[in-house]
Write a protein that binds this DNA or RNA. Structure first.
Length: 320
DNA sequence: AAAATCCTCAACCGCCATTTT
DNA sequence: CAAAATGGCGGTTGAGGATTT
C-alpha cells in the first residue's frame, strides 16, 4: 500500500547546513538532477530528510538564484503583486527571476510591511489606514465611531511616541529648531506611564466600540448627528503629524481625494483580491516566455513608492 | 565593555493537493 | 479505489549578527 517513507525521521540531521553538505548536494544534483527527493539524500551521502534537501536546493543552492539586496524595481514589483494576490509568495516570486518565495516572504515581513505602515498604508489591504477607518466608520453608529476615532488616534499617538523615543537625537534637533507655528512639544515629556495609559485607552475604546452591537445600523444614514466622517477627519487632521503626505483629513469620506498611491493600488471597492488574482494567474499561464507587463513596468527605474505606478491591465476573463 | 534589544533570514512545521503504489 | 508518500506552499521559529542602552 502506498509508498515508502521519504526518510527515517529519527536518523536525520537538522539545523544549519555545512559547506560539505552543500557540496555533496550540489554535485549530486548536477549529475543526477532533482527527480526523486526521497532518494537524493541517501544517494548523495547526506543524513538529511529529502524535504530538507529540496528546501536547501530551492532556497539557496540553485545556481540561478540571486543573492543580496532587493532592487527598487523588485521591491516595487513585490508591493504591486502583493496588492493583487496577497500572501501568495510563490506566485510573486515567480515574477522575480532568481528570487524564491522564501526570499520574498522574508523581505516583505522584515522590510516592505514596515515601509508601507510607515507611509500610513495598511500592508494587508494596501489602502491608507484612513480609508480603512472610514470604511469601518460607515458601518457604526455615532457613539461607536467616536470610540473608534479615539482608539485610532491613540494608536497613532502610541506609534509616534515609539518613534520619537527611539530617535531621541532627531527629536531633540527638531525641538531646538521648531517648525513655524508649531510651538508645542507634546511628546517631549512622554513617560512610560503615559504610553501604558495610551495603550489602555486604545483597548478600552475598541472594546467599547465592539461591545455595542445594538447600535450598529444597517444601511442607515447616521451622519445627521454626532460624529460624521467629516468631523472625524477634522479631528484626525488636528493630529500633529501626517505620514508621507497621507493627510487623514484629505482621505476621509472622499474616495477621489485619496492619495495617488491609493488610486493606483486600490481604489475603494474596485480593489478585489479575487478579481485581480485571476488576472495574475492568467499572466502566469502565458507560456511564450516573455516578461509580463508588470515585470517591464517595474523596471522603469521609478521608486517603489512612485505614485504613478499602475496595476497590470489584464483581461478580466482570465480569472482563476 | 557588557547587557539588552532588535533585526534578518535560513530552516522547520504543518497543511493540502497531487501522485504513486 | 484506497492508502500513503511526495511536492509545494504559507506561517512560524530561533540562531546569530547588528545596534542600542
Amino acid at each position: 500500500m502506498g509508498r515508502i517513507p521519504c526518510c527515517e525521521k529519527d536518523n536525520v540531521k537538522r539545523g544549519q547546513w555545512t559547506p560539505e553538505e552543500d557540496n555533496k548536494l550540489s554535485s549530486y544534483i548536477a549529475q543526477h538532477g532533482t527527480r526523486n527527493w526521497r532518494l537524493i539524500p541517501k544517494n548523495a551521502g547526506l543524513q538529511r530528510c529529502g524535504k530538507s534537501c529540496r528546501l536547501r536546493w530551492t532556497n539557496y543552492l540553485r545556481p540561478d538564484l540571486k543573492h543580496g539586496q532587493f532592487s527598487d524595481a523588485e521591491e516595487q514589483a513585490i508591493v504591486k503583486l502583493h496588492s493583487v494576490v496577497g500572501n501568495r509568495w510563490s506566485l510573486i516570486a515567480a515574477q522575480l527571476p532568481g528570487r524564491t518565495d522564501n526570499d520574498v516572504k522574508n523581505h516583505w515581513n522584515t522590510k516592505l510591511k514596515k515601509k508601507l505602515s510607515g507611509m500610513g498604508i495598511d500592508p494587508v489591504t494596501h489602502k491608507p489606514f484612513s480609508h480603512l477607518m472610514a470604511d469601518i466608520a460607515t458601518t457604526l453608529a455615532p457613539p461607536q465611531v467616536a470610540h473608534l476615532a479615539e482608539a485610532a488616534l491613540g494608536c497613532l499617538k502610541d506609534e509616534m511616541l515609539h518613534l520619537l523615543t527611539k530617535k531621541r537625537i532627531d527629536f531633540q534637533l527638531l525641538q531646538s529648531n521648531p517648525a513655524p507655528g508649531n510651538t508645542t512639544a507634546p511628546y517631549s515629556t512622554a513617560k512610560p506611564e503615559d504610553k501604558y495609559e495610551t495603550v489602555e485607552k486604545i483597548k478600552l475604546g475598541l472594546s467599547r466600540a465592539i461591545q455595542e452591537p445594538e447600535m450598529v445600523l444597517s444601511n442607515k444614514p447616521w451622519d445627521t448627528n454626532g460624529v460624521t466622517s467629516e468631523n472625524f477627519a477634522g479631528n484626525c487632521s488636528g493630529f500633529p503629524g501626517t505620514i508621507s503626505g497621507y493627510q487623514c483629513a484629505s482621505s476621509f469620506g472622499n474616495e477621489g481625494g485619496g492619495s495617488p498611491w491609493s488610486q493606483s493600488m486600490c481604489t475603494g471597492s474596485t480593489c478585489t483580491a479575487g478579481d485581480q488574482q485571476g488576472r495574475l494567474h492568467g499572466k502566469l499561464e502565458d507560456e511564450n516566455g516573455e516578461e509580463p507587463e508588470g515585470g517591464k513596468d517595474t523596471r522603469n527605474g521609478s521608486s517603489i513608492f512612485n505614485t504613478d505606478c499602475v496595476l497590470w491591465d489584464l483581461p478580466s476573463d482570465d480569472l482563476l
